[in-house]
């Protein structure tokens, strides 16, 4: 029951965070929200027992790709037009 609740909570948060990362105009905020998405995915993988995948998600998804996205945003216009 506890795990069911945990999964449901994370899945609901995932949807919210996914919509939010597209919703916000500021691309830096969008990148950070995307990192939260990756971290939630990482929790979900770890909870399902796929520890290798969770590890990759944490390092690549939440770690390096956020830095690379922010590095790219600094060479673009920071506010999205739509």
């Amino acid at each position: 029951m506890g795990l069911e609740l945990f999964n449901t909570l994370i899945l609901c948060l995932l949807v919210v965070v996914a919509v939010l990362s597209l919703w916000v105009r500021d691309l830096v905020v969008s990148a950070v929200v995307f990192a939260i998405y990756s971290f939630l995915m990482c929790l979900l993988w770890a909870e399902m027992g796929a520890v290798d995948v969770a590890f990759t998600e944490a390092t690549v998804g939440a770690g390096v790709s956020t830095v690379v996205l922010i590095a790219t945003v600094f060479n673009l216009k920071r506010k999205a037009k739509d």
Binding site: V51, D52, A54, F55, T59, V60, G63
Partner: peptide, 10 residues
């Protein structure tokens, strides 16, 4: 858990 990809990224 771990390996070349994760270690390399870290």
């Amino acid at each position: 858990p771990g390996g070349g990809f994760q270690g390399g990224v870290a």
